[in-house]
Each structure stands twice: as structure tokens, then as C-alpha cells.
């Protein structure tokens, strides 16, 4: 399936151009609004006058998802004539948890019988996909899925199945996760947060540091090659060893798995290695942002520099931004040695 559009909302802005600029610019310090550094999405990024009426009741989670999905659709330049030909898959680890807790605030403050129906309906995981479907008048299959380890990879597999089966010609496939107050507390207590705000993706440590992030990415995937083409997804596989030698590996090292030692083996394949979590932060659904970086690199035929502090194992890193012939990129996520996923992208 072809990658025909990308939409993104992340700490440094909205849209694929913002993302490209961030990749070129490199590391920028995260915000320190709480007790630790985090890559938060500012409220100003989530304002869109053209959609304000349609998302006036939407919460922050849904807004991030809607804006990135609408941007991916627009970026593709495709107008889906048959609205049933466009499917939507939203993958998330935690869903709109801030709204859930706000709803529980109502229960605690006003009793079980005096709570807000608007908050409740927005607290449901699939509210965001519902907004997207209504705004784009997309009537194809629309599902929201959740997973902590491999949410995006499973969403890609599903998108591939739908297109192969002919359920739809295009799928908006994306991820969204937010960093609410309770999640910040959980991160503070459970993660090894980098006090200097610097993720160290190539240390391959057994106690890696992280800097929590939030955001949303949608990818427009199409059966046919469109006018805007970032390349194609040729394979998404689980539990398999890496075969072949891509031009570049992009790895999901952001400190969230708690142990990144197993990524070290990728050095042995001899290909260039990159990883962009320092640009957007640590997220369980961060694979989608690395995937977006891969697609952008294939389209632009540019290798973007990755940010690192140390490279103790001598990995062949992408240390500068430069024009490079890139035919194939593998995006790798390893949760445990036996749980490894490979997403293969080709020019």
C-alpha cells in the first residue's frame, strides 16, 4: 500500500512541514511545566478556525487526532468520491484519559446522577474517530484499537488487510496519545525520566531514560499510487528475524520499554541507523512518528540527522542531514527479544 499523505500534531507544531523542520533543526529542550521535562502539545497548536464549529465540544485528545487526520487527508490531495471507500483506524495506548478523569471529577463533586453527558461521550475511546469520520464524511469501516506494545504496527496490518480485501481504497491510519495530569504522575513514578530532557536513543541501555511526549500522527494509505507519494509499505511482520539489508534502520528507542539492550544487534547489519524520539518525546505510540520520519526521508531522499549524546557501541548513525539515495527503510520496535516488529518501507 502507498503512503499518500501524512498529518502530524506534536510538540513543535502541526503539519508535515513542521515535522520536517524539526527533523532538520534537531533537538530542542522540552517544557518544564510540571515536575519533569516533557514534550507537550501547546493549546495554540490545537486551534483551527476552519474546524472550530465541528470540534467545539471535542477534548484535547480528539482535537489532536482530528487535526492530524484532516491534514493527512488534505496532504494526500485525494478526494474520495465514494465516502464508503475511506476507512479510519485510530490506535492509542491510553485514549482520552484526561476526559475520563474529568468525568470522574463530576461523579465525585456532583454525584452519580449529575454528571455531564458531553464529557462522558467524549471520554469513550472512539470519540476521536467519530469526529474524524463526521468531518470527512467518511463512511467506510472506522475502528479504534488499543494496545500498549505494538498499537501502530497492528493498525498498519489491519489497514493492509482492509485494502487487500477491497473493503476500502484508502485508510487513514493513525495514533494519538495525550499526557494528562494523572498520566504525568504515572510517568513520574514509573519511568526513568531524563532530568536534562535528553533521550539517549543509541545508548542501548538496560535502564534507558525517557522524556514523556504526546501527539498524533495519521498516515493516508492508498491502494493506488497517488499524486503525492511518500513511498509504500511492503511488509509489517511480528516475531521474525530481520532479513535483507535496508539503507536505513529507524529504531523506536525512547526509554518506554525499560530495556533497550536488544536493539544493539541491529548494528551488526551494517546499515545506517536513526531514531527520532528526541524530536517528539517518549510515547507508547511513538512508532507512528518514526514511521512518518521514514516516509518523509523516502519522499525527499534526505537522511535527517539524529540527536544523540553518546554512541558507546559505535553504531553507524545518521549524524548529519544530507541528500541520500534511500530505497528501503526498516522501522524496528523490539519489546522483548521474541517480540520484534519490522515495518518495511520502500521508495
Amino acid at each position: 500500500m502507498f503512503i499518500s499523505g501524512i498529518g502530524i500534531v506534536f510538540t513543535r507544531g502541526r503539519g508535515i512541514d513542521s515535522f520536517e523542520n524539526a527533523l532538520k533543526e534537531g533537538w530542542r529542550a522540552p517544557s518544564w511545566t510540571g515536575s519533569f521535562p516533557a514534550y507537550r502539545v501547546g493549546q495554540e497548536i490545537l486551534i483551527d478556525a476552519s474546524l472550530s464549529k465541528k470540534i467545539r465540544r471535542a477534548d484535547r485528545f480528539s482535537r489532536m487526532a482530528v487535526l492530524s487526520a484532516v491534514d493527512a487527508y488534505r496532504d494526500s490531495g485525494i478526494t474520495v468520491n465514494q465516502s464508503e471507500n475511506l476507512g479510519i483506524i485510530l490506535a492509542t495506548a491510553f485514549g482520552p484519559h484526561a476526559t475520563t478523569f474529568s468525568f470522574i471529577d463530576d461523579i465525585l463533586d456532583y454525584s452519580d446522577a449529575n454528571v455531564s453527558p458531553t464529557k462522558f461521550s467524549n471520554s469513550v475511546h472512539n470519540a476521536a474517530a467519530s469526529y474524524i469520520s463526521a468531518i470527512l464524511d467518511s463512511r467506510g469501516p472506522t475502528v479504534t484499537v488499543t494496545q500498549f506494545k505494538l498499537a501502530f504496527q497492528n493498525a498498519l496490518i489491519l489497514a493492509g488487510s482492509w485494502i487487500a480485501e477491497g473493503r476500502c481504497d484508502h485508510v487513514l491510519c493513525g495514533c494519538a496519545d495525550e499526557l494528562g495530569t494523572v498520566m504525568e504522575y504515572a510517568c513520574k513514578m514509573k519511568l526513568n525520566i531524563a532530568k536534562d530532557g535528553k533521550i539517549n536513543p543509541f545508548a542501548f541501555s538496560d535502564s534507558p531514560v525517557s522524556v514523556p511526549g504526546e501527539g498524533s500522527v495519521f498516515i493516508m494509505l492508498s491502494k493506488e499510487k497517488g499524486s503525492n507519494n511518500y513511498g509504500k509499505v511492503t511488509e509489517t511482520s511480528f516475531f521474525q528475524n530481520i532479513t535483507g539489508k535496508p539503507d536505513l534502520f529507524i529504531i523506536d528507542t525512547d526509554g518506554m520499554s525499560g530495556n533497550e539492550k536488544d536493539y544493539k544487534d541491529i548494528i551488526n547489519y551494517g546499515s545506517l541507523i536513526a531514531g527520532y524520539s528526541p524530536v517528539f518525546g517518549s510515547m507508547l505510540t511513538g512508532s507512528a512518528l518514526n514511521f512518518a520520519a521514514a516516509a518523509l526521508m523516502l519522499k525527499n531522499q534526505v537522511a535527517y540527522k539524529c540527536i544523540f549524546q553518546d554512541n558507546p557501541f559505535g553504531a553507524k548513525l545518521c549524524a548529519e542531514t544530507y541528500a541520500k539515495n534511500l530505497d528501503e527503510i526498516y522501522c524496528i520496535k523490539i519489546c522483548r527479544p521474541e517480540i520484534k516488529t519490522i515495518v518495511k518501507l520502500q521508495k
Binding site: V145, N154, G160, E165
Partner: peptide, 30 residues
């Protein structure tokens, strides 16, 4: 299990959609 695994959170149609997705996996040989 060594294949794909995913939790569908499509509100009240979650179970039916999950069954449909599993059907797609089997048909596509996953």
C-alpha cells in the same frame, strides 16, 4: 499467541468489529 493481537475499542460494536478483524486476519493468512 504469536500472531497479531489487538483490542478493539469501538464502544458497543467492539466485539463484532473484533470478530470481523479476526476474520480478515485468517482470510489474509496472517
Amino acid at each position: 499467541a504469536s500472531g497479531p493481537s489487538i483490542t478493539v475499542v469501538n464502544a458497543c460494536s467492539s466485539g463484532t468489529d473484533a470478530i470481523g478483524i479476526a476474520l480478515s486476519w485468517l482470510k489474509s493468512g496472517l
